[in-house]
């Protein structure tokens, strides 16, 4: 029997575990091995995750589990995502869905975002959590590699109202060598599918001389789906199996984005402290409508918000914002 959550479709027969090691077969069905076990419930500014165009200014409770279906050589959370789950079980929290939502509201959070590892490896628990969150009026979002099956894509669209998809590269060589997957076509398919129902932002970590040649092509793909999708180009922070790699040159990557900026109105270049490319300008009149600070690994933050009706204050053009500006402390009060 094969797993049907992600595109790897691992064989789970005879007690075998798949790449993510988070599902097993039981009585003819695929079950989570560690349901409702969570690796954290941290507070974060939503801009840090990053979501630049969803619920600006809001306080997110970020959660995660263990495991991943990718094998990225530069994974920043490799110690969680690629660890053998059994070795970290004693570090996990066990919360029911209602308990987790209650924790979020108690801590003044406006939304819940799954961002530690890949949500596809824990979909049944997340589906149940989404039910409890919806009942409490708490939106849910996630960061994902979008390497899931079409069935799972539909499921995720029902769970998450806003998603940041990591489109890491396009070439098959890159996908094989750096991500451990055959190719990116399922990711592209799922982006097209999700763009119709869900607020999307896309992130691409750039590794100089490895995937920076894909920059123009990725921008063209995003523009073909919906040019209003915000695109976060990350300066790769060498981690995990790439600790010895050089840091990408900021000026070189910035120059390589020139063509993309003509195709897409919302291109951001960050993941390093003090980036100059984190503000949103009106696509029509170029007036700055949202200003931010990038603190790199210290998290990004909203600085000034000039489009209170999600419209440019100068020319009135609508800015692609999911939800409204949300005061950081406006959720306080329960405790």
């Amino acid at each position: 029997m094969n797993c049907n959550f992600c595109e790897r479709r691992c064989d789970l027969s005879d007690g075998k575990l798949g790449v993510c090691r988070m599902y097993r077969q039981e009585n003819g069905a695929i079950r989570e091995r560690f349901p409702h076990r969570w690796s954290t419930y941290m507070l974060s500014r939503i801009e840090s995750l990053p979501f630049y165009h969803a619920y600006p200014g809001s306080r997110s409770m970020t959660i995660g589990t263990l495991g991943c279906n990718f094998d990225c050589r530069y994974c920043a959370n490799g110690f969680i995502a690629k660890a053998e789950p059994e070795t970290r079980l004693d570090t996990l929290y066990e919360f029911t869905s209602r308990e987790l939502v209650a924790l979020a509201t108690k801590r003044g959070c406006h939304n819940i975002v799954f961002n530690v590892n890949e949500p596809t490896v824990s979909l049944p628990s997340l589906q149940e959590l989404a039910g409890a969150a919806a009942a409490a009026g708490v939106p849910m979002g996630c960061l994902t590699n979008a390497y899931m099956t079409e069935e799972s894509t539909e499921l995720m669209a029902g769970i998450f109202s806003f998603m940041n998809i990591s489109l890491k590269g396009l070439s098959a060589d890159f996908c094989r060598q750096y991500l451990g997957i055959a190719d990116a076509s399922p990711v592209l398919r799922n982006i097209r599918q999700l763009a119709a129902t869900t607020h999307l932002e896309i992130t691409t970590p750039i590794i100089q001389s490895v995937n920076d040649g894909d920059i123009d092509q990725i921008a063209e793909f995003i523009a073909s789906v919906d040019p209003q999708i915000p695109w976060h180009v990350f300066r790769l922070l060498p981690e995990h199996k790439m600790k010895e790699a050089d840091y990408p040159n900021v000026a070189v990557i910035d120059k390589a984005l020139a063509k993309s900026r003509k195709l897409l109105p919302y291109v951001y270049f960050h993941n390093f402290v003090g980036s100059d490319w984190v503000n949103t300008n009106c696509p029509s009149c170029k007036t700055p409508v949202i200003e931010r600070f990038s603190l790199g690994c210290g998290g990004d933050r909203l600085s000034r918000y000039h489009c209170l009706d999600n419209k440019c204050p100068a020319c009135g053009r609508a800015i692609n914002i999911h939800g409204r500006l949300t005061g950081w402390n406006s959720g306080e009060g329960t405790v």
Binding site: A76, L237, E239, F272, V273, L295, G296, C297, G298
Partner: peptide, 12 residues
């Protein structure tokens, strides 16, 4: 250093 939670982003 400008490192947070062991992630290294340079110096200040």
């Amino acid at each position: 250093c400008f490192a947070r939670n062991l992630s290294n982003q340079g110096c200040m």
